[in-house]
Amino acid sequence: MNRLVTTLNSHRFLLLLVLLLFLFIVPFVMKESWVSLVNEMLVMALAGCALNLMLGYTGMISFGPAGLYAVGAYTTAILLTRYRFPFAIAVISAPVLAGIIGGLIGWFCVRRSAVYFALLTLAFAQIIWTIIFEWYGFTGGDNGIVSIPIPEFFFTISHCYYLTLTVVGISLLLLWTIVQSPFGKTLQAIRENPGRTEFIAIHLRRYQLSAFVLSSAFLGIAGSLFCIFSGSVFPDYAHWVKSTDMLVICLLGGFYNFGGPIVGSAVYIFLSKIISKETMFWMFFLGVIIVFLVLFMRNGIVGFLSEKLAPALHGTSRPSSDEEAQ
């Protein structure tokens, strides 16, 4: 039994290594359009994992991640375009501001029960979208902000790609550290039974708020990265459809695995590029995909693979590990 766990774990390590190597050589072996696609996958993987810190780990059902993502993107865009801030500061400010605004919004959202949390997150994201959409003088309204003065070095797609890869890599490592920490375990306990945690001296709302702020900051990083990648920002970034993208990425990959949103992002971005080319009604299929996943594949791709495939491969049921409990 023990040996099996070790083999699985070392396999996981090996898989990760192969994946990293592959991601590293992407610009050398792929066409530019594919590099952009992988770039987008990386950004959305980070956004998905950030959202999943709330959904999968803390059990807080947020429908407004795109709002915070847009705060990150617009922070970088506005600081660069309007105030000519140095690039590094414009990027670092994104998670800081997203975290602060996330803190404000989160303070309201955790004040009432879970159902209000869901509807308030959606409402606040809509507020952010409205502000961006209406405030022509500052955000450019529905014209967005284009030709953002990004350092020329990052005009080359492969340079931008490596920046994204590095930042996403570090961010995911941080998120992984967080979910494995005592704080992360406490969040999972809150997900399982929020009422009970109060009787083991956990200040429930404070922890939920902390999770909200952390999640917002990472969403801000993702937004900022996408702003750098595309060189422009639009109100669409805050639109509820963008939140749907992120929710589906988590759902598709699986909520209860750290890697779920990463796999979800890769599959989802790939699919959306292919299907949206063929049909005007991509959103309809997206809706159908959501319904299908909820009804028949609740644990997502990663959950499906580890439940159905792993036992079949090894001819035995998977031993319990930390992973399953999450």
């Binding site: 999972q188 009422g195 083991i200 409990a325």
Partner: peptide
């Protein structure tokens, strides 16, 4: 009133973290 999808060990450990004021530690490995 337990934490159903955490292991028995983790159920207790989360409470121990709280007692030891370690619940807010985000960098150590639980």
């Amino acid at each position: 009133n337990i934490f159903p999808r955490l292991s028995a060990f983790e159920n207790i450990q989360v409470a121990v973290f709280s007692q030891q004021r370690k619940s807010r530690n985000i960098f150590a490995r639980a």
